[in-house]
């Protein structure tokens, strides 16, 4: 009756809404948690203390060097054809503008192909990308490479339509990368509305002039920590079932959705198992990653530190795509392991979350999966996820306690059973 007991406790029993309530206190107290910030330090201290108070085992911090970039004062104004205040959010790792700002004519393009075709028009201009949202995975390259591609053709700055599937004039930030040998130009995201408006103006042949001022600063890498807690296995304590989410977030909103929800259902999995007095045969280890938003920085260092033990990692699980209404798990592993996952997911029939999809996804677990460790990621209703992602809208208001209960039940049943089965998943 263990699966039923976990579901009952998480969804109907004393623990219902606990992950939501814990997350609300955490996010309301700490706020956003950008890599290198004092807020992130406070978040890690908070969690270290909370996990100890919860009675979990081997609570400890593992040091990591993470990027330290800070947003400064940001301001953008359309000057021609009319005065219009443009909502912007500088992109992570962007350089600042000169103190006096940049005033330049705009070149609007809808794709990198169009930019390359019109390269001769770009010199000295601010390139505005108005790429359509296809999917996050496909469209996000405009955010990560937009500044580099614009700089290659002589632009002085780039403004990139937010990677968002819906907008109420909200800019959405994110990390971007420069390339060695290519000039570093300031880059920021703008709202879908402003990108489309400038595109319409441009199509009509209207000259657009924008003034941009950004005060970003990049500091030397700073020390942060992956936060770890365990329930030590009773029979094979050296073997690990890893559940995870990331504790860092962007510096806007509260990071409640990305990835507070994933971090707190991972904590909830260990709490539920402890509350039920269960101890699986293998060690159930929770890792709250740091520096995920800068490209899985904490997770990569964790992998380098622990990879010699890779044969003892049974499965790596990460929830980093929301904790809305769950439908199942995405799984990476061989056919035999997938069949086992399907059997385990059948235990979640009482809450109708039984699907096993192809290919787990998670920046922080990819290092392990690439090297043969089975992996799983939570699948939930993503329909509104990119409305809020990396924006001021990522707050507790988008979270739903009942949906988090269901996510916690899935996360706990799956991780517990894999940790308690007599044999590791085949690989």
């Amino acid at each position: 009756d263990i699966a039923k007991a976990i579901i009952d406790l998480a969804v109907h029993g004393k623990a219902q809404n606990r992950s939501y309530e814990r997350l609300a206190v955490f996010t309301d107290t700490i706020g956003p948690r950008l890599s290198g910030s004092k807020n992130l330090d406070a978040a890690i201290k908070y969690m270290f203390s909370a996990l100890q108070k919860d009675g979990l085992e081997n609570v400890h911090l593992e040091p990591v060097k993470v990027p330290h970039w800070e947003r400064g004062e940001e301001f953008a104004m359309m000057l021609e054809p009319r005065n219009h205040s443009i909502a912007i959010l500088g992109l992570g790792n962007s350089v600042a503008t000169p103190p006096e700002g940049i005033r330049a004519e705009v070149l609007v393009v809808a794709s990198f192909d169009e930019l390359h075709r019109r390269a001769h028009e770009a010199k000295g201009k601010i390139v505005v990308y108005n790429q359509p949202f296809v999917s996050y995975g496909e469209t996000v390259r405009y955010r990560s490479l937009g500044a580099v591609e614009a700089a290659k053709v002589g632009a002085v700055a780039s403004l990139i339509r937010s990677i968002a599937s819906f907008s109420i004039d909200s800019p959405h930030t994110g990390w971007q990368n420069y390339q060695s040998g290519v000039p570093q130009i300031p880059t920021a995201c703008i709202s879908v509305e402003d990108a489309e408006m400038m595109s319409r103006m441009s199509c009509r042949g209207t000259k657009i002039v924008v003034y941009l001022k950004m005060g970003a600063k990049t500091y030397p890498d700073s020390t942060s920590f992956n936060t770890v807690a365990e329930i030590v296995g009773s029979k094979y304590p050296e073997q690990i079932v890893l559940v995870s989410g990331h504790l860092d977030s962007w510096d806007v909103g509260q990071g409640a959705m990305d990835d507070g929800g994933g971090a707190f259902i991972s904590w909830e999995a260990l709490s539920l198992i402890k509350d039920l007095g269960l101890r699986p045969k293998r060690t159930l280890r929770m890792v709250l990653w740091t520096g995920e938003e800068q490209g899985g920085v904490g997770a990569e260092q964790y992998y380098q530190l622990h990879k010699e033990n890779i044969s003892n990692f049974d499965i790596v699980m990460e929830s980093d795509e929301g904790t809305f209404k769950p439908s199942g798990l995405a799984f990476t592993g061989n056919a035999k392991a997938r069949d086992i996952m399907k059997e385990i997911m059948a235990l979640l029939l009482p809450i109708n979350v039984t699907e096993v999809y192809d290919t787990a996804d998670g920046t922080d677990i990819n290092f392990w999966m690439r090297n043969g460790v089975p992996g799983a990621s939570l699948r939930d209703d993503l329909s509104k996820y990119f409305w809020f992602h990396h924006s001021q809208g990522d707050t507790m208001t988008v979270q739903d306690p009942n949906q988090m209960n269901l996510c916690a039940a899935v996360w706990t049943v799956v991780s517990y059973i894999i940790a308690d089965m007599e044999e590791m998943l085949p690989r």
């Binding site: 263990i2 059997e343 235990l347 308690d420 590791m424």
Partner: peptide, 24 residues
């Protein structure tokens, strides 16, 4: 260790199914 060094997986799938069913 529950996973043998050569990666063989000694249990049949039917055994594993029954084991998992025990968690209902």
């Amino acid at each position: 260790k529950s996973l043998s060094k050569n990666g063989n997986y000694p249990k049949t799938f039917e055994d594993i199914k029954n084991e998992i069913a025990g968690y209902y």
